[in-house]
Simulated scan of single mutants.
Amino acid sequence: MAPQIDLNLPTALILIDNQSAFTHPQTVSHWGASRSNPHYEANLQSLLSTFRDAQASSSTPLEVIHVFHSSDSSSSPLHASHPAGGIRPLEFAVPVADGSEPVFWKNVNSSFIGTNLESYLRERAIRQIICAGLTTDHCVSTTVRMAANLGVVDRLLDDGPVRFRPDGSRENEVRVEKGRIFLVSDATATFSKGDFDAETVHQVSVASLDGEFADVIGTEEVVRALKDIKKT
């Protein structure tokens, strides 16, 4: 059975690196000869606008979180000083002006390193995250993997963490009520790498996450679930 979003759970939509450098004519070739998923922009815009609409109708907390990249390398299109202004959010992914959508800045692939994102999710008892953005094989993949490994949406039912004996056997067992991590595969995109075309890189990256680190879902399924909130 295909994975289903449960919007009765406190949920965060985490949008990763939706920045001008990845689409600007002066900088896009920096990443690769071609990009996957020509529908990325339209799908992510639909995802974000529908999520924002659903926030007003939902009795369960729904949060939009933006993560952006600020490179340490002065030659990167994502460096703050780059003349093309690639560090700027894409027009359709600009956080709302009232400050209600938190923004986290990172300088590595993971959205959890050097940021307060993990503590933010735990403090608000977020039990489900929906991830989308750029790029599939780098910052999106790393963020999804770390979210799963850190258990940011899980709830411990016993005192943790697990302790191991020298032989690798467990000294204690820790029961965990698992949260849910979704990757919106058609609201992400990446670029060609070496001899591999962009769509192959994208599909293999998604397949590597599916079922172990996240449940893979499409924009249409998420949008449908969000619109159903208004009907209940």
Results as ranks from 00 to 15, higher is better:
12 A>G: 08
128 Q>N: 11
203 Q>Y: 02
186 D>A: 14
160 G>M: 04
219 T>M: 12
185 S>R: 15
34 S>W: 06
108 V>W: 08
84 A>M: 06
15 L>E: 04
35 R>N: 01
60 T>G: 03
117 L>S: 09
16 I>N: 11
208 S>V: 02
144 V>W: 12
155 R>F: 05
60 T>Q: 10
10 P>V: 02
142 T>F: 03
185 S>G: 09
143 T>Q: 10
47 L>A: 14
190 T>H: 04
15 L>D: 06
5 I>D: 00
87 I>W: 09
53 D>G: 03
12 A>V: 12
155 R>M: 12
103 V>F: 05
227 K>E: 14
215 D>G: 04
133 G>Y: 14
226 L>G: 03
161 P>Q: 07
128 Q>Y: 05
232 T>Q: 12
15 L>S: 07
198 A>H: 10
232 T>I: 07
80 A>S: 15
29 S>Y: 01
231 K>A: 10
225 A>Q: 08
85 G>S: 01
111 S>I: 02
173 E>K: 11
141 S>D: 09
114 G>M: 07
105 W>E: 13
134 L>D: 07
225 A>V: 05
171 E>M: 06
78 L>G: 09
178 K>I: 00
14 I>H: 13
113 I>M: 07
226 L>Y: 08
39 H>M: 10
186 D>R: 10
201 V>S: 10
24 H>R: 07
150 L>C: 00
147 A>Y: 02
198 A>R: 12
228 D>C: 04
67 V>W: 05
148 A>G: 03
167 D>K: 10
86 G>N: 11
189 A>S: 15
65 I>D: 01
68 F>K: 13
208 S>A: 14
191 F>A: 10
199 E>D: 13
186 D>W: 12
206 V>W: 09
128 Q>P: 06
9 L>W: 01
32 G>W: 06
222 V>Q: 10
160 G>I: 03
151 G>F: 01
29 S>F: 04
70 S>Y: 08
217 I>R: 05
192 S>P: 11
165 R>F: 14
14 I>M: 12
77 P>N: 02
198 A>G: 08
173 E>F: 13
210 D>P: 04
156 L>N: 10
220 E>M: 05
138 H>W: 09
98 D>F: 14
206 V>K: 11
116 N>C: 05
19 Q>I: 01
4 Q>L: 02
159 D>L: 15
80 A>I: 09
36 S>C: 07
156 L>A: 13
185 S>I: 00
145 R>C: 05
230 K>L: 08
169 S>H: 12
225 A>P: 04
82 H>D: 10
190 T>E: 09
83 P>A: 06
158 D>Q: 11
70 S>N: 11
26 Q>W: 01
12 A>E: 10
196 F>C: 05
97 A>R: 15
116 N>G: 14
111 S>A: 15
93 A>S: 15
71 S>E: 14
118 E>W: 00
49 S>L: 11
185 S>F: 04
145 R>S: 05
5 I>N: 03
142 T>M: 09
221 E>K: 14
213 F>I: 05
56 A>T: 13
167 D>L: 01
199 E>L: 06
183 L>D: 04
161 P>T: 03
203 Q>P: 00
32 G>Y: 07
52 R>P: 13
53 D>K: 15
80 A>G: 02
134 L>C: 12
50 T>W: 02
41 E>D: 12
33 A>E: 09
200 T>D: 14
108 V>I: 10
207 A>V: 01
1 M>H: 03
191 F>L: 02
148 A>Y: 08
199 E>P: 00
161 P>E: 06
106 K>A: 02
122 R>N: 02
127 R>D: 03
35 R>V: 04
